[in-house]
Amino acid sequence: MPSFHWNKIRRSLAASVIGGLAVVSAGATIAEDYPTQPITLVVGFPPGGSTDVVARILAGHMSNTLGQPVLVENRPGAGGTVGISHVASSDPDGYTLGVSGVGASILIDALGRDSGYDIDNDLDVIGVMGTLGLVIAGRNGLEAQTLPELMEFAKANPEALTYGSSGVGTPGHLAMEYLKSLAGVDMLHIPYKGNTPLLNDVVGGHVDIAMLTTPGAAEHVRAENIQPFAVSSPDRSSLMPDVPTVIEGGFEGYTATLWNLLVAPKGTPADVQAKLSDALNEAMKDVRVVGEFATKGLAPTISSPEQATQFLHDERSKWIGVIETAGVPKK
């Protein structure tokens, strides 16, 4: 984007002028002092959404640790990729960071839809910002009461059941395709534009099954508006402890979780990355953050930049495997 280049040029110019030197590269910050100015944390989704909430909880605590405000900036668009491509083209000085989810980090590229950046070459992964489980829920009035019963019915009646997802190529869609391929069943996919209209239609009884985020579904489960079958995380969710996992339902090795990564432009100095990583992990250990995470169905994660990068690689091979086994068409 021309604007991004302009930003870069302008910032470099400003840096050179302020430095008063002929050779000052844009990223040359003195790392020991870091941070000396507010840090921008770019979120690729609108305010109030689940990614935004995660970012704001962690940014609040990281501001205290780092001694500079960490400001959340929402640049929503194209499944989070608009925000992350802005981060990818920013200066690697540690003052522009991003929150990159499953879609922006893996799925969009894995499905052959150009994201505008290459996460391995354009971004450094600093840490994992918690994980979030999904829940397979059905409309009221379905005969099946458990996941095995549901899969049995689906097997006996191919394409009789409809399942909704929050969109083509979203984790919910792929997680369901994954389960379908493991169970050897066929259900008709009905894509929606996000979680909200999907929730509306499963509560209203227009679609049979939906893959929903646990915090979005929890209240409807409690009010018995929908019937939970299983959670997709490896362990049961703090929000609905009575609901078994898909693994407990007899599908060994099945996990599908949403997560976010703290990313920075490639080339961010190692000591800046270390400082950010420490601040993130510090936040993850904080009692208040842990408490807030629990009420939102999030599981805290502690990771070094290397571990987080490894996590990204592992998740990528898993999702690419899912896309191949389930035969999801690539573009």
Partner: peptide, 21 residues
């Protein structure tokens, strides 16, 4: 979209918006 943000405001305060609100 505006209403989603309103619900976001509730969630930030630890109130889960839903049928039992």
């Amino acid at each position: 979209a505006t209403m989603s943000i309103m619900l976001g405001a509730l969630m930030i305060h630890g109130i889960s918006p839903g049928p039992l609100l």
